[in-house]
Computed example of a mutant assay.
Amino acid sequence: MKFSTKEDIEAPIEAVFDMLGDFEFFERAAMRRGAEVQRTDTKNVPGVGMGWRASFPLRGKRRQVDIELVTYDRPTEMVFECRSPNLIAMLTVELVALSRSRTRIMVSTDIKPLNLSARLLVQSLKLAKTSLTKKYKLRIAEFAKSLEDRHKRVA
């Protein structure tokens, strides 16, 4: 099951990529929302092979996911593989420079079940695909706006 959307950001492509590559910022944000996040690699600079183990409450249960950065192509693309015992998801973030000060961000998430219970979950998600797609697009639009605002504060 795949979700995708695109948004335009009033910021240069390098600045947007740098904000997306500020992994410590995202780790802190996840912790503020109740997740436990641990780095699973020892890299000092961003790149392929970076990894995290995250644990968070969802629907009354504690869930765990392992995240690995599998593509890091500065300044145009990052791909994350997110694995749980039941699902695997690929999160792709692509950037395209529209002008010196404008960047298009394209985000897609592809979810694949690994067992029967996950298949049932994905099947039920397909029934609600229209509303889930709307929510996905709204969240990415909010995220893009936050990146734009962050850039304006720094610039």
Rank of each mutant, 00 (worst) to 15 (best):
T92G: 08
R39G: 01
S131L: 14
S108N: 06
R153C: 11
L95H: 00
L132T: 13
V122R: 08
D149A: 02
R63W: 07
I9E: 09
I13Y: 07
M78L: 08
E10Q: 11
N44T: 12
N44P: 01
E81V: 05
R62P: 07
N115L: 03
V79L: 04
E7P: 03
S99H: 09
V107T: 09
L98G: 04
S99M: 04
L20E: 08
D8P: 05
T42Y: 07
L132R: 10
V45S: 10
I140E: 05
K126E: 13
A128G: 13
R62Q: 11
Q38Y: 12
M106Y: 00
D73Y: 00
M1W: 02
M19F: 15
E36L: 11
A118K: 14
E10C: 05
R100I: 04
F25T: 13
R39H: 10
L87N: 01
M50N: 11
N44K: 14
I140N: 00
K61M: 09
A144P: 12
G60P: 13
N115Y: 00
S99P: 00
Q123A: 06
L91Y: 12
R150N: 12
I9V: 11
T76L: 02
T130F: 12
F143H: 07
R104I: 02
E68M: 10
R33W: 05
I67S: 04
A128I: 11
G47L: 10
G47F: 15
K137A: 01
R39W: 12
L121H: 02
L127I: 15
D110Q: 03
A97I: 03
E7A: 10
K112R: 14
K6A: 05
D66N: 13
L114H: 06
T92Y: 04
A30Q: 14
G21C: 07
T109Y: 06
M50C: 12
K145R: 14
I67K: 01
A118G: 15
R104Y: 10
K43S: 13
D149H: 00
I88K: 05
L95V: 01
F23N: 01
V79K: 01
D41F: 05
L125V: 08
F143M: 08
A155H: 14
E24C: 09
L121N: 07
K145G: 06
V154C: 04
A29H: 14
M50T: 13
D149V: 04
C82N: 13
F56S: 12
T40W: 05
D149G: 01
I9G: 06
D41P: 08
D149W: 02
I13V: 15
T5Q: 03
D73E: 06
M19K: 11
A118E: 12
E81R: 01
A144C: 13
M19W: 15
Q123N: 07
A11C: 07
E27I: 09
T109I: 08
G34T: 10
V45Y: 10
P75N: 01
A54E: 05
E81M: 04
E94A: 03
E94L: 02
S101N: 14
F80Y: 15
E7I: 02
L138I: 13
L69V: 07
K129P: 10
L98E: 06
V16H: 03
K61F: 12
G47E: 11
E24T: 15
A128F: 06
A128Y: 00
G60K: 11
F3Q: 00
P75G: 00
P57F: 04
E94C: 03
V37I: 15
